[in-house]
Nucleic acid binder design. Structure first.
Lengths: 183, 183
DNA sequence: ATAAAATTGCCGAATGGACAGTGAATAATG
DNA sequence: CATTATTCACTGTCCATTCGGCAATTTTAT
């Protein structure tokens, strides 16, 4: 019970999504449960279900929010540079410090519970990829960079070995260089 | 009830693991349930739990089996080539046609239910990575290849866009070339 | 060798907990 | 007052895990 216990917010959805992310960050993606989210958001279970009528909808909302953030990061790359989309993908992952900021975690839960939840993501990435590939002649070179970026994502997410911070920095530098060399 | 209904096999574990993989392949990783595995393996629930006393143990067993297969694939790369481990990782994923043969799916379930299940995988990969990096001077170049391979894994697993089969082939060729150019 | 005893591998019916979803009642808001 | 946001108390389902029993197999004792 917070100080505002009896005050109705106009829209609890952001708080709910934030709660879900907090749980995923703290306890792992699999622990996202309606009850848990309700507790975390200081709301009743019914309250959560009022905003997201099913758990599936909640997960979809999560993914949606993260996709939106992803788009924002992409948009923050200067308009006129070559390989803009590809640069955006790389910088997005460099900036996302906490796993919490990252798409990947939501992706995992989604995939585990219902693969169709990933459809919007697939659509988005398909568009991105088309743009990336049409930005250059060296499509397989570009694709290697794309794949490496995805590799970075899951490596961080799953806590797989990364060869240390120093190497990580040099890898990112190298990826930047590879992007610059695309024509 | 099969024809051998009253015959006791010495060890149902392989059948159980096979059943689990079949389910994961057909219905998704999240559908691995003791009941389902029991049905698929034509065994009772108790029978499954006799071989794997908890579900966690079952998942650990799955991961273990897949790690063993992974080691085998690595071992199949000719002894004397440079960057042997790295080549092994690449060829392993090229060979694994069905997602079914791939580590990744098991990884996902494991990560979702209990991150600690990934510890053996982490250990294995840490060793692999050390070997890979000590095989060359160009550590960041090698790491980019490692990351791209991981990217390929998850791309396939999650059904993310890959730019088509042609591009995929060229990417693999390019990765092979990158490995050859490592010193 | 063989009967008895112990062990192994498995069955299948409970048990209980976790969880998604419902609906009627209630409070807040404009 | 009417609409919207939320609570509360349930319901039903799914699922991991427990447990007593049983048949086949192996070991031990005679």
């Amino acid at each position: 019970m917070t100080i505002q216990s009896k005050m109705q917010a106009k829209n609890a959805s952001p708080r709910i999504l934030g709660a879900a992310r907090a749980i995923a960050h703290r306890e792992g993606a699999g622990k996202i449960t309606i009850d848990a989210v309700a507790r975390e958001a200081d709301l009743s279970k019914g309250g959560v279900l009022y905003n997201f009528p099913t758990k599936r909808a909640l997960l979809a909302g999560l993914l949606d929010e993260m996709l939106a953030e992803h788009r924002e990061r992409l948009a923050s790359v200067p308009e006129d540079r070559r390989s803009r989309t590809l640069r955006g993908h790389l910088e997005a992952i460099v900036q996302a410090r906490a796993v919490d900021d990252d798409l990947s975690m939501a992706i995992l839960v989604a995939a585990a519970s219902d693969p169709r939840l990933l459809d919007p993501l697939r659509a988005e990435l398909t568009g991105d990829l088309e743009r990336i590939l049409s930005d250059t002649q060296d499509t397989s070179g570009a694709m290697v960079v794309v794949l490496a970026i995805q590799g970075l994502r899951f490596q961080k997410l799953l806590g797989l070995p990364d060869g240390g911070a120093g190497l990580r920095g040099r890898v990112i530098e190298q990826l930047r260089a590879m992007i610059n060399e695309l024509e």
